[in-house]
Simulated scan of single mutants.
Amino acid sequence: MKIKNIFKNKSEMDTESTNKEVIENETENVVNEIETAEELSIEAKLEEDLANEKDKFLRLFAEFENFKKRTTKERIDLFRTANQEVLQAMLPVLDDFDRAMVQISKSEDEILLKGVELIYEKLKSTLVSKGLEQVDIKAGDVFDADFAEAITQIPAPSPDLKGKIVDVIEKGYKLGDKIIRFPKVVIGQ
């Protein structure tokens, strides 16, 4: 009976050791699966973080490119209109010269007229070289509020001048494409 018990204990021991091995193998498999899942989770998180950083970088790069374009455009505009204040300050002097030329041309002093004409032409050419242009509007043109400022309306001297410019009171000037002083006109109604 002792031998039978020994075999019985031995088979129980074998079964127990087999069960332990199975449990250890299953435990090891579960631990491996958890570690693999953690590695995949960490890898996915790293990929997501990398994608977020790439997106931030691309947005920052695009914002910087827009900044460069905007500042370049502003700089070009600044250079283009840098003289604007000086030229605007010179416009009343140019108007005074126009009025003086009308009065001097009525006098009989040819030498005075030639001297003032030389100075006037030199001033005009200097202003033109800096980008100043006269707005081309004359009596008889159709009035356009985008290019002229109406001071007053008078009854049209003739029916064909209704809604048109009757007289130009003050010349207009532009710097490049920008009008810096609108011509002041009288409109026929």
Rank of each mutant, 00 (worst) to 15 (best):
E48M: 14
K20F: 10
E53I: 13
L78R: 07
K54F: 04
N83F: 06
E47G: 07
T18V: 04
L40F: 07
E39P: 01
E35D: 07
K20N: 12
S41N: 08
A37V: 00
S41A: 14
T36I: 10
E39L: 11
R80F: 13
E33L: 07
E74A: 14
E85Q: 10
E74H: 09
D77R: 14
A82E: 00
T72Q: 15
K20S: 14
E24Q: 14
E65P: 03
E43Q: 07
L60P: 08
N19C: 06
N52Y: 00
E65R: 12
E85Y: 02
E28G: 09
L60E: 14
R59S: 08
V31S: 03
L46G: 09
A51S: 06
F61S: 11
E85N: 13
E38S: 09
N19V: 05
K69M: 12
T71W: 06
L46Q: 01
N29I: 05
D77P: 01
E65W: 01
T71K: 07
V31D: 03
I42K: 03
T72W: 11
E53N: 05
E53H: 05
S17P: 02
R80W: 12
A44G: 04
L78S: 06
A62F: 05
E21V: 12
A44Y: 01
F67G: 11
A51L: 02
D55W: 01
T27V: 14
N83H: 09
E65V: 10
E53R: 06
E65A: 13
K45Q: 07
